[in-house]
Design a binder for these strands. Structure first.
Lengths: 344, 344
DNA sequence: TAGAGCCTGGACAACGTTGTCAACTCTGGG
DNA sequence: CCCAGAGTTGACAACGTTGTCCAGGCTCTA
């Protein structure tokens, strides 16, 4: 059949009514064809299909959602879409969503609790079926009406604040403890810790791991060896340099996350004497630096996948108490942690 | 006022009607309060607000969208959310969207034209106001009804196929030409080119730049020095090793994108003799490898920002012919390109 | 040939919101 | 005391879809 010239009306799209009129059938018949429902003769179906292509019709999902209740979409609030640690997590969530036929809406909180809240609630207004949140704030009571109303919610990477909900975490404490123990095992006695801001759960957990390892080895911790704060390069650089040049200089550094590690590598590369380093989070090419950077690796993709699967299980109707899942970390030894201390 | 216990009904959220009933006002008055419209006495407003918090009401944006026509959301189809090159682009688009009060829906095409199409059309069904697409396929006529119906569309990183639309690109040809010329200037005569799959526009453009630089220097190109294909490490590794060990081994490599560069760095690090390298796309820590990797850098964030700004300009009603914007690249010299050829 | 049952198709209400418009209340002036 | 005008408020339709339900035509059987 020759396709007649499409009759688009700008900003005024054809609806099922238009298609029905053109095909000379009823409204519901068009709906049936569009949704592949049974009960339409092949001939009628073809007439409808022709009308659809001729008019350039596309179903309006807003109306559909309004009618059906479910939106087949989930929202993801993370810290920074562009962070190399969160990007794979994002992708993993997307894959799981796709496998369940859902779309993904996402946004970066930039560590701002207000922005996190704003994003999460905007997603709720869109009536996403579920939410995955990497918390920036530490009070998530604002989500209670939403959760009660049926929006499944899973927190990742950091626990929710003041709210019972599913959480998927990495073992920050254990990972940091093992990483620091590795440095201790190689003879280091004065080890610095540079981490993220103290209100971030993973930052304090890792610091706790650091203290645990030091304590277990009977090593005192000079408070000038500990620095928490923003991961901006300038801040980290200043902190590292202070530790390396202070009155009681450290011989090794433990970096609290991937952003810190990257800056630490730069500082150490420029340092007068070799400094051992272990970083939390693996990163691309870590093995090609010299020495290769020893890291405590967490599996960001698995974190995302686990959270998303948990979310969809809830959406599928599984009812159980909120659970806390903790994924193990893995120490990847590459050399930078094995440097002997410059002095005993 | 004491807050009465919330009366959430699971899966059956309160609507404006419920709020109106509880506050003892009309439906429209609730709407006015929710949207901050004028013409409501402070007393009435407070009654409504109380009812809202008591019921845990949140406006249903699906219904709102249906009624208003505009969705205040845009869709972004990219190749891979987790790719370190696209992640900043993604973030930049998000920032611009946010500045315009729009949400971002996104998805990865994984270089699959069908998946690109599926995602883009799903976004259209959601009635996004605009689309930003990093094309995987080379035929975008499927979008014509959508564009005609008013969905603004901008293509980024690669041009649209068979459709007139705004495009924002990096200067792949010029960048590759300059990068290769840099190698030539350092005495290299036999230079390999490893790029992405031939159906990808940027891949062929960069190859064209390579050929142009070689031609301009009067250097013949042995076809065994050119390899296009998937950027999977195995494929790139095999290609690089073949070029380094072949009958006419190359003394330098030009890597067609960030994925290729990373693998090339690994191969070269393990090679018997030094091999010069220039890569397209900058990457983190490129300066800390030894030697530092010389790259042709494109500004992914700027690419995304430019595209998004263009999109919103169209959404603001600016009418003009589709335009092609080409952003310059920048050669960042770090050392790996300056290695002399092993032999003349 | 009548009756039962199936298949196809369509009329209509409902989802939750916003725009239109009319009605109402209150103030102040004549 | 009435009226104009301003300021509030609410009734109602509409947005585009889907679920429910019924009508009409057909086939099949007795």
């Amino acid at each position: 059949m020759a396709q007649t010239s499409p009759q688009y009306r700008y900003g005024n799209r054809p609806t099922m009514k238009d298609v029905a009129a053109r095909a000379g059938v009823g409204l519901k018949t068009v709906s049936r064809v569009v949704n592949g429902e049974p009960g339409v003769t092949p001939d009628t179906e073809r007439r409808v299909q022709d009308a659809i292509t001729a008019l350039g019709f596309r179903r309006n999902d807003s109306a559909r959602i309004l009618r059906k209740g479910r939106t087949a979409s989930i929202g993801l609030v993370l810290e920074d879409l562009a962070d190399p640690f969160y990007a794979p997590l994002n992708r993993a969530v997307e894959e799981v969503a796709r496998a369940h036929g859902a779309l993904l809406i996402n946004g970066s909180s930039a560590e701002d609790p207000d922005r996190e809240r704003e994003l999460a609630l905007a997603f709720c207004a869109r009536r996403v079926d579920g939410l995955i949140i990497i918390p920036a704030g530490d009070d998530h009571r604002y989500l209670e009406p939403e959760i009660a109303a049926g929006i499944a919610t899973v927190f990742v990477d950091r626990p929710a604040g003041r709210t019972a909900a599913d959480v998927v975490l990495s073992d920050s404490f254990g990972g940091a403890r093992d990483g620091v123990a590795h440095l201790v095992a190689h003879g280091h006695r004065r080890i610095g810790f540079i981490g993220d801001q103290p209100h971030i759960h993973t930052a304090t957990e890792r610091l706790r791991g650091y203290r645990a390892a030091m304590g277990a080895a009977g090593l005192p911790v000079d408070e000038s060896w500990v620095s928490l704060g923003p991961t901006a390069p300038e801040r980290v650089r200043a902190a590292a340099e202070a530790m390396l040049c202070g009155p009681r200089p450290v011989t090794a550094l433990f970096a609290g996350n991937n952003r810190v590690t990257v800056t630490a590598v730069r500082v150490i590369a420029a340092a007068a004497r070799p400094v051992a380093l272990v970083g939390f989070d693996d990163f691309e090419l870590a093995d090609l630096l010299s020495p290769g950077v020893t890291v405590v690796a967490q599996d960001a993709a698995r974190l995302g996948r686990t959270a998303a699967e948990r979310l969809f299980r809830r959406l599928d109707g599984v009812v159980e108490a909120p659970r806390r899942v903790e994924l193990p970390t893995r120490l990847i030894v590459r050399g930078s942690g094995e440097l002997p201390p410059a002095e005993s």
